[in-house]
Design a protein around this nucleic acid. Structure first.
Length: 443
RNA sequence: GGUCCCUUCGUCUAGUGGCCUAGGACGCUGCCCUUUCACGGCGGAAACACGGGUUCGAGUCCCGCAGGGAUCACCA
């Protein structure tokens, strides 16, 4: 049977590294198995879901190259969910509850205070008809809970965590329908997984208890629980939960503000927290081939944003001219090859372009040296051997060599102490500009 | 607080009782290349949280302790 997986983001915000990891892991698995990767938009929360966020999700996934085979919105399937609800009610598996959020909060606090797990007491289950009519007369509307069946534990063999066993005594009957009649994600998710014949649910470990609950819902609606794989969460550099500082950083900002290559993100997230080495990949092929649930660690991995930047630089250093040609604003191959080893982000090329074209303020420590260098400048158009010829002549006439020779010339010609190989840079700067800079003029 | 999970170099990790004087990758660092920096190539330093057991022998098994993560929403 061919694999079918889904990535199910909620369009209530922008995608961040945590989301992307979930998307990537599902995508890699699907690609490797030659299966189907579904993008499901979990927009049951109509108030917080927006079209803008949905568009942004599409944009971000496309940028990363995580193409999907199928996509749909949960909000288009409310009829189907309602039908399932009717069925569940008929089976007596759904029961109305009238507590307010505050009342539930209070109950939980009391339980916690007594050292008890904050599990719903199922008060709604024992409501008399009189009580129910009274609540309704008060204007209260019910929310609906799913009656968890009695087996003490729900168990499965997780592709990442191994044998999992959840004590259902510590889990509350899940609310499936809000008082306003809208769905929480719990039921639609299960219904969709059944209807779309999802074979593997691959998501973060924050969902393990949900999986136990949903396992029972799968059975209740006549479906079968797919194979499960729960990967560990990611933490920030210092071990803090990824949610705040880093997690709040949308993938869009990696692209737009920091200007990173998508493959740097893919390279890191595809390997972080696994036993496979983190490497700068130019394309996802090897990641797809080597993908393996058994390499995933059960512990929380720390993500250092610097690692993405390192990978980004390495990727750029290996990127050929043809692969960036349409992002170079018309710059030619000589320029790219000269500048490539010295950039960390693609946008760094702007700075080198400026250094070539000017204006650059030459840094001259020793005017005599600058003068001597100017005198030694070869005639004619600059070419690939100009630099070597020139520096040889400067060495002969001044007796200066090595670092003492190159460093000052670099500072004069570029205003920088470091940079691309001057042999290739010099012809790009050109004779006229070079002369001006050697004379100490800004050019 | 209940439940579940984790704890080996700075970081991601290999390791399922002797093959471990603990291996790889990133980072760091040294050397080489380049008559300079960077790029690249080749080396190096660097870890079994702690305390008890079990065993001829423990990173590897057991117990404890400490630390960390997840979850316990009318969010997903």
């Amino acid at each position: 049977m061919s694999v079918k997986v889904r990535f199910a983001p909620s369009p209530t915000g922008r995608l961040h590294v945590g989301n992307i990891r979930a998307a990537l892991v599902n995508w890699l698995f699907a690609k490797q198995q030659e299966g189907v990767f579904i993008l499901r938009i979990d927009d049951t929360d109509r108030d917080r879901s927006t079209k803008e966020n949905e568009d942004a999700i599409h944009e971000d996934l496309k940028w990363l190259g995580l193409n999907w085979d199928e996509t749909f919105r949960q909000s288009d399937r409310f009829d189907r969910y309602n039908a399932v609800v009717a069925d569940l009610k008929a089976k007596g598996l759904l029961y109305p509850c009238f507590e307010t959020t505050e009342e539930l909060d209070m109950k939980r606090k009391i339980q916690m205070g007594r050292g008890m797990p904050p599990v719903y007491d199922r008060a709604g289950l024992s409501l008399t008809n009189e009580q129910i009519t009274a609540f309704k007369a008060e204007g209260r509307k019910p929310h609906w809970r799913f009656r968890l069946t009695t087996p003490a534990r729900v168990e499965w063999t997780d592709l990442i965590r191994g044998p999992v066993s959840i004590d259902m005594e510590s889990v509350s009957d899940p609310i499936l329908i809000r008082a306003d009649g809208s769905f929480l994600y719990t039921l639609p998710s299960v219904v969709d997984d059944v209807d779309y014949k999802i074979t593997h649910i691959v998501r973060g470990e924050d969902h393990v208890t949900n999986s136990a609950v949903q396992g029972q819902i799968f059975e209740a609606i006549g479906g079968k629980m797919p194979k499960m794989a729960h990967f560990a969460m990611l933490a920030g550099k210092g071990g803090e939960a990824l949610s705040k500082r880093l997690g709040s950083m949308s993938i869009g900002s990696y692209r737009d503000e920091i200007g990173l290559e998508p493959m740097s993100v893919i390279s890191l997230l595809g390997r972080l927290g696994t036993s496979l080495p983190i490497t700068a990949f130019l394309n996802p092929q090897e990641l797809i081939e080597t993908f393996d649930f058994s390499t995933f660690s059960r512990g929380v991995a720390k993500l250092d944003p610097q690692e993405i930047e390192h990978l980004n630089a390495k990727i750029l250093h290996q990127t050929s001219f043809n692969d960036v040609i349409d992002r170079l604003d018309g710059a030619d191959e000589n320029f790219w090859n000269a500048v490539r080893p010295n950039i960390k982000k693609l946008s760094d090329i702007k700075e080198w372009a400026r250094i070539i074209e000017g204006p650059v303020t030459p840094l001259i420590d020793n005017p005599e040296f600058a003068h001597a260098a100017l005198e030694a400048l070869p005639q004619g158009e600059f070419n690939a051997s100009t630099w070597k010829d020139w520096t040889n002549r400067v060495k002969e006439t001044t007796g200066i060599k090595g670092k003492e020779l190159f460093k000052p010339l670099r500072l004069i010609l570029t205003g920088q102490g470091f940079g691309p190989d001057l042999g290739t840079l010099l012809p790009l700067i050109g004779r006229e500009t070079a002369i001006k800079r050697l004379q100490g003029e800004e050019a």
